[in-house]
Amino acid sequence: MPDASLALRARSPTRRSEALGAWLLTLPAALSFALLLLLPTLAAIALAFTDYELGLIPVWIGLENFRELLADRGFRRSFFNTIIYVGLVAPLSVGLGLALALLIEAGARGRVFFRAVFFLPVVSLTVAMAAAWQYLLHPTIGPVNTLLRLIGVTGPAWLSSSDTVLISLAAIGVWENAGFNMVLFMAGLTAIPRELREAACVDGAHSGWSRFWLVTWPLLGPTTLFVVTITMIRSIRVFDTVAVLTRGGPNKASEVLLYTMYTEGFTFMRLGYSAAITLVFLVIVLALMWVQTRVLDRRVHYG
């Protein structure tokens, strides 16, 4: 392990001053970590077991919040909506990102241009683009429904009908994430040695398809795993589009975990209850990361 202090190890006073220096350097970070991350997180976990409301004194109520969550149809709806959302956005945006990366890497022309085009959503103000999507998907004046009308189809009220709202939000989610995933896949693709692809050609892989299955897909394994996990974690944090476009409606049809947490905490001021939702959220994220590192990681890396 690289260690600049090896030479000084023998002499104790210098070692002490080095330790002191190190602590001074770490102090600001350590303090802010404790105050801004550690304590609040612990407080949030603790609050989940209280009935805290802003201005009142919290009372310990044990698992009462969680019992209420289980019984609350609104929360159950929110939970399942989030799962459906992630279940739509993750595979579609990963698939689209992979397809875009493959298309761009397949040739030399237009690489920089197309990469910029597809990456644009990542650096755009989410709130602003959500408003733009609202115009696009507007039932009467939106271009999407206007286009459908031209071919004789009556488009639904995408964002205000409970049947289609989740799908519409998921489509926006795919739009937001595809470019990000594309860039990650492009990095993974360039890491595949060129000679391996050439060997596949010489060995008899005529078409791009057979080369993909023989070389590209297996060697993208670690990247794919990474991208899937990242996308699931990113999409489970969906908030902006719901806050701007639907506010959870119509009738909780687009209610999602983080938005419920927000409304319970800051509209109804039930901070204890909101903290319980936060805890559920945290557990899910941790579980996702655990699955990535333990279960699948083993199978994907080659000895």
Partner: peptide
Amino acid sequence: HPARRDVAMVFQSYALYPHLTVAQNIAV
């Protein structure tokens, strides 16, 4: 296409498929 040329090549880096066993590599 190389596959139709009846040619076999040994690359400088060997270009073995890391996810396949030796037997599978040879069999490709």
